[in-house]
């Protein structure tokens, strides 16, 4: 009996691990190398300084082509900016609003409640400006790719100057080691000292990639820290409650032969 129960539970674990893994392993691009991220593990949290550097990279580089439509300026509180800093950042952006009393659209400086504006007015414009490839929105990028942050980091650092011999690289495409099919429309976006850090962090391509990947992980999972903290509490509570329920069960069943 007990054996059956154990087998069944093991099977439940196995099936989840097995099929999850199987689904994830699909794809013909190389599997990106696993990186160490500060938010991994049971107690991992975001590194605010890193998120802010990553934001700087996004703002100065990625934002030229990629939108971040699920993030409002007010959300930047989550990476450690205070209200005044957020207002200042928001005010740097022009937000289209309206219509005004004359029925016209107008632009005004951004407010904390505004969302990051898209660099292109619509998808067609985005495609037209980028040789037909629409730069995807980055808000959920780390959740929307197999491999998550490891993939995003791998992609940003995985450009190669020359395609391997015999590889037929189309015009206007770039060779990327980790991109499925290896032909990517995005030119290598990062380079050493692409962004000026003020906190003494080395300004290498790899560091920029690492920081912006961390920032994008935050945009994809802003609830991560709250989730894990609550999870610890919930599981500790459940362990206590379940132990107590087990004790009560033993007591109640004590006199029953079963």
């Amino acid at each position: 009996m007990r054996k059956f129960a154990l087998t069944a539970i093991a099977a439940a674990f196995a099936v989840t691990a097995f099929t999850g893994g199987a689904a994830k392993a699909a794809g013909d691009a190389p599997v990106p190398e696993a990186q160490d991220w500060s938010w991994q593990g049971l107690f991992g949290t975001y590194d605010r300084a890193q998120l802010q550097r990553g934001f700087q990279v996004y703002k100065n580089i990625c934002a030229g082509c990629h939108s971040l439509r699920f993030i409002a300026f007010r959300n930047l509180e989550g990476i450690g900016f205070n209200e005044d800093q957020i207002k200042a950042i928001a005010a740097e952006y022009d937000i289209e609003d309206g219509p005004n009393d004359d029925g016209d659209m107008f632009t005004r400086p951004g407010l904390a409640s505004d969302y990051f504006p898209s660099p292109f007015p619509n998808e067609k414009a985005a495609a037209a400006a980028n040789g037909g490839a629409i730069p995807p929105d980055l808000s959920l990028m780390n959740k929307a790719r197999v491999g998550g942050p490891d993939y995003v980091f791998g992609l940003l650092t995985g450009y190669e100057e020359e395609a391997p011999e015999g590889f037929d690289l189309a015009d206007g495409k770039y060779y990327n080691h980790y991109f499925p099919g290896h032909q990517i429309s995005m030119a290598p976006p990062l380079y050493d000292e692409a962004v000026e850090y003020t906190d003494g962090t080395p300004m290498t391509l790899e560091q920029h990639a690492r920081d912006v990947t961390a920032f994008l992980n935050w945009t994809a999972q802003p609830e991560l820290e709250a989730r894990k903290a609550l999870g610890m509490k919930v599981i500790l509570f459940l362990l206590v409650l379940t132990a107590m329920l087990y004790a009560v069960k033993r007591k109640i069943w004590r006199d029953v032969e079963h």
Binding site: V240, M244, L245, A247, V248, K251, I252
Partner: peptide, 14 residues
């Protein structure tokens, strides 16, 4: 008595 206390405590925690 112990069982009563245990049951009560468990009910409360639950």
């Amino acid at each position: 008595n112990r069982r009563d206390f245990l049951t009560l405590a468990t009910t409360a925690v639950g």
